[in-house]
Write a protein that binds this DNA or RNA. Structure first.
Length: 185
DNA sequence: AAAGTGAACAACCGCGTCCGC
DNA sequence: GGCGGACGCGGTTGTTCACTT
């Protein structure tokens, strides 16, 4: 299928947003909402593509965005969820109020990935059995494949079906797994 | 003080999925 | 059921800033 060009259209601006553009976007969305991202920039008088507007709003301009450093609790949550979900940033973000997928993704690649890799190396060399490390070492790739199915089956799933593949899910993993089932993911 | 380097963050791009026609 | 437009997601790139030499 031929895809319509987006930001490469003639005359559309790219790059960092100015405070004026932010103000226009916020004002327009507060007034009219964002039913149609593609039409929004034209209606608002912005020389941006709809995609760019959406990204800007979702990641930085939304009133419920929580800016600033991640707390230790948030870090741990991300690590645990990533162990279960893999790179499902939007799913992880859905469980961290005020955080966006882009922010979590950046934080992961700049902070947590190194930490996770280090601890994984450490666990491999020491043959420890930290639940999270074990989950990341043994289940993450599999979880990436299986989770969509798990999500689809969440409504009628029981915790027992977690045993296919990742057999050694312990209490902590089970807690997070149950959380997903309860939230319908 | 200047140049080099790496980390952190913001934004873009391409693809998959959803949904209306 | 197929097609096409729009949206959302994840990966990647670009830019800025801080630190080191």
């Amino acid at each position: 299928m031929m895809r319509a060009p987006c930001c490469d259209k003639m005359g559309l601006k790219k790059g960092p947003w100015t405070p004026e553009e932010d103000h226009i976007l916020i004002t327009h969305i507060q007034r009219y909402g964002h039913q149609n991202w593609r039409a929004l920039p034209k209606q608002a008088g912005l020389l941006r593509c709809g995609k760019s507007c959406r990204l800007r709003w979702i990641n930085y301009l939304r009133p419920d965005i929580k800016r600033g450093n991640f707390s230790n609790e948030e870090e741990e949550t991300i690590l645990k969820l990533h162990g279960i979900l893999g790179n499902k940033w939007s799913a992880i973000a859905a469980r961290l109020p005020g955080r966006t997928d882009n922010e979590i993704k950046n934080f992961w690649y700049t902070h947590l990935k190194k930490r996770a890799e280090r601890s994984q190396m450490h666990s491999m060399s020491n043959s420890t059995s930290c639940p999270l490390q074990k989950a990341q070492a043994t289940c993450s790739s599999e979880a990436q494949i299986r989770m969509p199915q798990v999500a689809a089956d969440a409504s009628n799933a029981t915790t027992s079906n977690a045993s296919n593949g990742c057999n050694e899910i312990d209490e902590e993993m089970e807690f997070w797994y149950n959380l997903f089932i309860q939230t319908g993911q």
